[in-house]
Design a protein around this nucleic acid. Structure first.
Lengths: 335, 335
DNA sequence: TTGAAAGCGGTACCAT
DNA sequence: ATGGTACCGCTTTCAA
């Protein structure tokens, strides 16, 4: 009547004629086991297809080898790529990925962070700079007291926190410089969400515009919803107001796509530079020159740091990668 | 010296002056606890910020309330959206999402499936019809012996398996019918990966083409890599070989984008219908008419079924949703 | 090299 | 309503 869900270590021990301690040793790859004994145990394990109970293991070791990934929105292609790469890297380190999509509400981020801690994950990875709240990072600081917190493309000043970011400030500054060299005088800037990343880009835009003596006008910095259509509308309005705009830079590729649509609808053809080097930049017509922020490298580096830290070694609090411009049809650096 | 990682139920019991059994009752919301006692315990819990150990709980209950999501590739925007929605639905049911990106190799799918089982997830959700292997579904069947397996947009004939799919066969058939009504006579078909989903679409294309007496030629059914560029190249070749092609249908939006590029490059303007109603369909110029396969609804239904099944109730093995065509610039149904 | 036994931190049954 | 206690299944220390 009473049916066992599955075999346990006692069953294996009995079948192999050894104690559970020995089985445990064999399974954890301990050296001090007589080859013959090991052999016998492994045979039984093989034959019975035995798998140790992960919860019991977790209870004993205090870890189930899981890493929590906190991400504002996986349906965003940029974050999706990040999660994809991270998951892959974690898998290589033999960690499972516990995915939490938090949305952008701070309360949710806090709640999910503590959920993750309650699940005793070995580390937490924050994907997306949206996590850099200007207001309140206490949940991150709290989490970092318990487990290492990796932050992809975001920055938090806090112990046991490892920020891997791309120098987007510099990249955007460079965008403006290149357009200036190209002869442009009045650059529109389209952005969405005020994430850490976006704030950097806007700051860079402002400073570079000033530095190179380009048209300086707050109205040139325009907010859009995160859709092609919104960007197109906003850009159209902007072009109506400022017909002398002669180049467009955006904080995201999708917005650049919308901008291009606005341009071609009026038969214009201005330099446009997007950001993220996403699939959108290739889909658009014309294809969009875009800044590659090295997401793959950031995630790989995150994995690196994670394994370093979990091994008990020191890792840099802040790692900055350099972005690179991928030239496509909307802008080519003139030689 | 010996520092405790965190408080356990004994600490709480002691502080509250009750037994651990009572603490357990209070925390699990049992009715049979004197309000006064409950109050006292909750106070201590509140004050100490106590959180029960998830592993111990899992060990006792045989579940940590986790659901495994198996997905060939989250960086694919379609799957990413699915995972995003699923995660949200699971969260509402109080389940965590354990994400596994399997890639398309069968061996990996099998391995990860058993990993998931070893982690004692409460259910497994398969995202993407790529999981319907013509050759071997034994890993799915095996998994279904242990936990319910939900399949989004795929079909497996097996007990304890719940397939939620969209009638893509019908949708593709309808595409061909509409184009025929529109006066088209020779339709090219672009596809990637031979997933269950794609197989359905191809079959529908074939049958409809036959039924409506359109040009029937295996060469019109062309394989591309999953990139704009590849689709563009393939489509260009196709148009060179068959200059009389007068409409294009694709198994994925991205391929439709490529097709449109090929068309506009030769100054052509044929009806094009994509599939998935993804962000790409809106980004392209012109915007692409696309079949919406109701991904959101499928995922919501999956969550529904999951809660039903986990509650011990019966749920349908197969749920089919109806797709709908979203009209954009590349094709409008003529009245 | 091996085994016995004490945790790990809960749940739930059985008394009281 | 509450407490005692036997599990759940594994890891690890200590002895042998």
């Amino acid at each position: 009547m009473t049916e066992k869900a599955s075999l346990n270590i006692y069953d294996i021990a009995e079948a192999a004629g050894v104690s559970i301690a020995t089985v445990s040793r064999v399974l954890s790859g301990a050296e001090n086991v007589r080859p013959q004994t090991r052999q016998k145990v492994l045979e039984v394990v093989e034959k019975t297809q035995y798998t140790p109970n992960a919860f019991a293991r977790g209870l004993g070791l205090g870890s189930m080898k899981m890493v929590g990934i906190l991400c504002t929105d996986v349906s965003d292609s940029f974050y999706a790529r990040a999660v994809s790469i991270l998951e892959h890297e974690l898998r290589l380190l033999d960690f499972d990925a516990l995915l939490y999509c938090t949305g952008s509400d701070l309360k949710d981020k806090q709640r999910y962070t503590s959920h993750l801690l309650a699940k005793h994950v070995d580390a937490i990875v924050l994907v997306g700079s949206a996590f850099k709240e200007q207001i309140d990072n206490s949940h991150i600081e709290f989490a970092a007291k318990h487990v290492p917190v990796l932050i992809i493309n975001g920055l938090v000043e806090c112990e046991n926190t490892y920020c891997i970011l791309c120098d987007e400030y510099r990249a955007m500054y460079e965008n403006v410089r290149l357009l200036h060299l190209h002869g442009c005088k009045k650059l529109a800037f389209l952005y969405h969400a005020a994430s850490y990343s976006t704030v950097q880009k806007i700051a860079a835009y402002r400073e570079a515009v000033q530095k190179y003596g380009l048209a300086l006008n707050e109205n040139l910095i325009a907010y859009c919803d995160k859709t092609c259509e919104s960007a197109e509308d906003v850009c159209t309005d902007l072009l109506n107001l400022h017909p002398d705009i002669d180049a467009i830079v955006t904080a995201e590729d999708l917005l650049a796509v919308g901008a291009c649509k606005a341009l071609s609808r009026r038969g214009m053809n201005l330099p446009v530079i997007g950001f993220d080097n996403s699939a959108f930049s290739v889909c658009a017509t014309p294809t969009i020159t875009s800044v590659d922020n090295m997401l793959g490298d950031m995630c790989a580096e995150a994995a690196n740091i994670l394994s370093t830290v979990l091994a008990g070694n020191k890792a840099p609090h802040k790692t900055i990668l350099k972005a690179k411009l991928v030239e496509r049809e909307t802008f080519r650096i003139s030689k």
